Computed example of a mutant assay.
Amino acid sequence: MTEIVATTPGLYPLPDWAKEQLKNQKGNQKADLISGDESEEIEQSYEDVRTEFIDAQQAASLDRIVEGQGRWDDMLAHPLAVNDAVDTQGIVRYYDNNNFYRDPVVTGDLEATGDVANELEAAAEQVEEGLQAVLPGPYSLADLATDEHYGDDAAFQAAIADFLADEADLLPDVETLFLLEPSLVENAPGEGADERASDAIDTVAAATDAEVVVHPYWGALEEKVYAHVMDADIDALGFDLISDHEQNVYNAQEYGTPDDVALGIVDGQNTLVEEPETIEERIEWFTDQTQQNDYERIYATTNTETFYLPVNRFEEKLEALGALNKTEVKA
């Protein structure tokens, strides 16, 4: 019997009240220009945001609860943006979306800050079970950053992997860790770099006892990249069935999957809210297409972050995912 686990990859949209409040608290700066040294009132605002995110997930009966990453104004680059060895410079486009982050330029030896762990510690006070951590994957974080210290791509990626492993080691007790790896799709590693990307994922995964889910999105992995990611010691691999269902199914058919998979079957960027029955049909379609694979667990999730959605649509999508808990799904 396959276990269906309703969850998300985090990075939720800030409520309107929080956007306005934080803008005022930061002296009318853009909300994404955060130094990491917040005042007490800014910290309180983010705590209130976290509580709202957790309440929404619990009300929707999700099986895994994320912190929501309300402070991650620099998107996946956030763990570097708050690091003393990083100079956060000019605004750059976040992949091909109309969202932006500050370019994290690494200028010294990276050491873990415990910033993400602190957020999870706070979330753990409100979540009795099912807590899920979210980190950028090592390949994506290295891709989004600029190196002015380590000297070459291989050394830089290894340093990023070690940094994330140290951050993961500081996390409180969580059931699942989602490593978000859109760059594996958006800027696929070439020959040699694909194997290094797999090794980097191994480094991070080895640092935690949690179930590790590598979640690429905005398309499907190239075949060689897929094969190398399959070599990594991970518990589950993600498939963005919204952006490219055909190639993702082909990869699963041709190269197999881990025992667990994460299926991106709710659109994290489109305001159209899927019915629970539609989500169930998408799960069944994937399992029918990949009958040679015997899945122990399927994480049913949005394909991307929901940062781009209006808050009301975001909450409705949480409710649609949570409704899967009350419905028998054939898998």
Results as ranks from 00 to 15, higher is better:
Leu14Thr: 00
Asp16Ile: 12
Ala18Cys: 10
Lys19Met: 13
Lys23Pro: 07
Lys23Tyr: 15
Asn24Ser: 13
Gln25Cys: 09
Gly27Glu: 06
Leu33Pro: 02
Gly36Thr: 07
Gly36Leu: 08
Asp37Cys: 09
Glu40Asn: 12
Ser45Gln: 07
Tyr46Cys: 03
Glu47Gly: 06
Glu52Val: 12
Glu52Leu: 13
Ile54Leu: 13
Ile54Thr: 08
Gln58Arg: 15
Glu67Thr: 04
Arg71Leu: 11
Trp72Gly: 06
Met75Val: 13
His78Ala: 15
Val82Leu: 04
Val92Trp: 04
Tyr94Val: 04
Val106Thr: 04
Asp115Phe: 10
Leu131Glu: 08
Asp143Leu: 10
Glu148Ser: 14
Gly151Arg: 09
Ala159Ile: 10
Ile160Leu: 04
Val174Ser: 02
Thr176Met: 06
Val185Thr: 07
Val185Leu: 08
Glu191Arg: 12
Asp194Trp: 12
Arg196Tyr: 01
Ser198Pro: 09
Ala205Thr: 01
Val213Ile: 15
Val225Gln: 09
Tyr226Met: 01
Tyr226Asn: 00
Ala232Met: 03
Ile234Met: 11
Ile242Tyr: 06
Glu246Arg: 12
Glu246Ile: 12
Asp259Val: 00
Asp259Ser: 03
Gly268Gln: 05
Gln269Val: 14
Val273Gly: 08
Glu277Ser: 12
Thr278Arg: 09
Glu284His: 06
Glu284Tyr: 07
Tyr295Glu: 04
Ile298Gly: 02
Leu309Cys: 10
Pro310Gly: 07
Ala320Pro: 04
Asn325Leu: 06
Asn325Gln: 13
Glu328Lys: 11
Val329Phe: 00
Val329Ser: 03
Lys330Asn: 15
Ala331Asp: 10
